[in-house]
């Protein structure tokens, strides 16, 4: 029960950070800000995949609604990310690295692993995001610079947000 409360709190916290960053700070159209994947990939490890999918869907829709983008854009991308998340986590972490119930955050994984974990998942998210945004593969090559810049910027931002919001709480 306590864990559920924590999840809700971090849901609201990450959503607020996302709204503030994409609303108040303008990075230009070359960078799209997506901080909210942080919430999805730091859900406790023992969360069933169905739970991950539902949380990702809820988060994506909430971000779509509040940042005034096209409805369903963020949720479709984050669903793909949530589906692949357990596999990526297994690949990144060592066996027995973490016990159950633990949030795979910066404090638990360490900088290198967390950055790698975030980078891989964000890449998946961004590829599907830009495909959903231009509805298909036609603009894919044209959108590549935007993709790379956004992945780099968002990885950095996510590590910063994770450090400032959750790192000290969890240690």
């Amino acid at each position: 029960m306590k864990l559920r409360g924590n999840i809700l709190m971090s849901f609201v916290a990450v959503l607020l950070v996302q709204i503030m960053l994409s609303g108040l700070v303008d990075f230009g159209p070359l960078v799209f800000i997506a901080i909210y994947p942080l919430f999805i990939f730091t859900l406790p490890i023992n969360t069933p995949v169905n739970g991950l999918l539902l949380w990702a869907f809820a988060m994506g829709l909430a971000v779509d609604y509040f940042t005034n983008s096209i409805m369903g854009l963020n949720s479709s991308a984050s669903l793909v990310m949530a589906l692949l998340q357990p596999q990526i986590f297994k690949a990144v972490s060592r066996k027995g690295d973490l016990e159950n119930q633990i949030r795979p955050g910066l404090a638990q994984l360490g900088y290198a692993k967390f950055a790698l974990y975030a980078l891989i998942l964000l890449t998946i998210h961004h590829i599907f995001f830009s495909m959903a945004e231009s509805l298909g593969f036609t603009h894919f090559i044209y959108n590549l610079p935007r993709l790379f810049v956004s992945i780099a910027a968002n990885t950095l931002l996510i590590i910063l947000v994770e450090y400032s919001l959750f790192y000290k709480l969890m240690r």
Binding site: F57, D64, I70, G72, L79, L83, A132
Partner: peptide
């Protein structure tokens, strides 16, 4: 199977939303 069905349902819903 349940996961895949849930994923596909939610994804289709998202695309319909778009």
């Amino acid at each position: 199977l349940a996961t895949i069905i849930l994923f596909l349902t939610l994804e289709v819903v998202s695309i319909l939303f778009i």
